[in-house]
Amino acid sequence: MALDELTQMTLTGINLGLMYALIAIGLTLIFGIMRIIQYAHGEFYMLGAYVLYYWAAVLKLPYWVGIIVSAAVIFVVGAALQLLLFRPLHGKNILYSLAVSMGLIFIISSGGLLTFGTIVKGIPSVVTGGVMVFGAFYTYERMVISIVSAGLILGLWYFLQRTTTGMAMRAVSQDPEVSSLQGINTRRIHWIAFGMGSAMAAVAGCLMGTLLSIVPTMGFIATVKAFMIVILGGLGSVPGALIGGLIIGFIDSFVTTLVSADVAYIIGFATIFVILAFKPTGLFGQDWD
């Protein structure tokens, strides 16, 4: 294996891994705080990309503002869905939240196919050019995307560690009852967390949409990846999602380049399976009921 190939695969791995981590952290946040299966998480990733598409490619408005708009729109959509559909299921068997979010997948992805059409679309890139790193071509676009993803993950970490709302979120995820005894409005935390998690998926969708192309069915693949990562890292754990994201990103990058995409899936799932067999709660997870 030549050095340039290795560099290329490593850079792609980091790039993919951070993006996956961005989606997965949103999911792990939602799970940790609400203990529900949000099976439709990837659909918000798809919707986020489409919001940016309509903003930047159809209306020709500035790209970076578009990402913020997309995140805001999906935040509102996610929070509204939490209040409307997931709040009544609080404390019930996870099967019910699985069923509701499965229904959401059916509605959003088919609705997407009907409204957006089946034609593959692209969002024009705003960053052009690139640089040679050890013989591998690294576009500035990928670099910017990696930096934005890493920045958002760091920002979220800061939010959870330092701000009042962030600390309240961590408290709720540790023990909902005790935290509500301490005066935390858990219902408010629920919809904020759901909105934020969905918005993070939307930003990932925007970034990925610029890099690749967008179709209404891309949400499910994102869900697959996000769940793989979250299970690998442990449900509810933010560092777990970051490390899991990087592991899956590297597997995807290396195995897809060297063998095939199907094998990348097989190895990814086999890795998860082996980890779960030895540590049934993922790498950093707690034992949830």
Binding site: L98, V230, I231, F269, A270, D289
Partner: peptide, 23 residues
């Protein structure tokens, strides 16, 4: 090995098994 996992983890692990079989 699958039955060592519980609740959400079981659901996800079984999902992974299904995908691997297909792939």
């Amino acid at each position: 090995p699958l039955m060592r996992t519980r609740a959400v983890y079981f659901f996800m692990a079984s999902w992974a098994v299904g995908e691997v079989i297909k792939r």
